[in-house]
Write a protein that binds this DNA or RNA. Structure first.
Lengths: 160, 160
DNA sequence: GTCATTTAGATATAGAGTATAACCAAATCG
DNA sequence: CGATTTGGTTATACTCTATATCTAAATGAC
């Protein structure tokens, strides 16, 4: 069979779906935020984890896993990475001898603050075309989608 | 060091960023759309590819790769999967003996239509909380973020 | 027309990211 | 107390995506 190729390729049908454009938008975000975090030797996940640890000092690993929707086995290497970089310490819990309390170091608190500023700059770049109210509305809409996923069949929980 | 764990874990700081909530929203979407596509033996990527092939019959593999921001090597197995399922045919290009023209089969066109309906239902589930104008605005905002990523440093291109 | 360069498709491979199963030790509960 | 659950861990595997390299054919310079 012989067929000539079209010159202009479209993705019209897919564009009707929020998920398709969201994936493309998120890819752009990921590329940019990854670059923004590189100077701090942080990845997206480790930055998220550090941020939650700084905001909730003393939390347990399982709580961190729950908060970021990460499976517990994957938390171990992640936290170890933060410990290795001197950003977080694994303290023993005073109430449960099995548990660890994650505490940020001074360096961790400082790095988190500076990384957060870098990510904020990144975020401004990516949403530069949006008014500040539009940006707020966007986040609210995303939250409502996140919530919509919570009540569905297999409860596909994962991520960070 | 002994530290008691906080009872309620927050992610306030991360919530200021569109990217964080977008990742969580997209995870929810992915879980649901993956389930929606399972009956058709399609994955997100293969569905996207099939949709573009149906919409642009005769396109070359490299055009498909460009359209979906997939690296060319990854297109090969992807298209083969569609061929194996009888949804697409690799036709020889009439103008370039190196090139392939991707053409949907009748089954491919039909499956694409039914899968598109299933994905549309999924999309409605996920955006149920949004008014139809809000949903349109959401997609426009996501497009603007996607565009914002196009003009940046390393031009982090990837995805599907 | 011939040679250098580019393009289309393909192969092999590697690295993230994330998921599952199974294990030990301590806590909890009947 | 014994059974069950929970916190952390290890090992492992699967998906997704990226990079390097190869060939055959097309294009472009002269």
């Amino acid at each position: 069979m012989m067929v000539a190729a079209p010159t202009r390729i479209t993705d019209q049908s897919l564009r009707q779906f929020a998920g398709y454009t969201m994936k493309r938008a998120f890819n752009a975000i990921r590329a940019d935020v990854t670059a923004a975090l590189a100077p701090f030797e942080l990845r997206m996940v480790t930055f998220s984890a550090l941020s939650v640890i700084v905001e909730n000092p003393g939390l347990r690993q399982s709580q961190l896993a729950d908060a970021l929707l990460i499976e517990r086995p994957n938390i171990v290497a992640l936290v170890d990475e933060l410990v290795r970089h001197g950003l977080v310490e694994k303290a023993k819990s005073s109430t449960d001898r099995r548990a660890l309390s994650l505490v940020p170091t001074l360096l961790g608190v400082d790095s988190c603050a500076r990384a957060t500023a870098a990510v904020a700059a990144h975020d401004r770049r990516m949403t530069a075309a949006l008014s500040s109210t539009a940006r707020t509305e966007l986040i609210e809409m995303l939250k409502s989608i996140e919530r919509a996923g919570e009540g569905l069949q297999n409860d596909g929980v994962t991520t960070a």
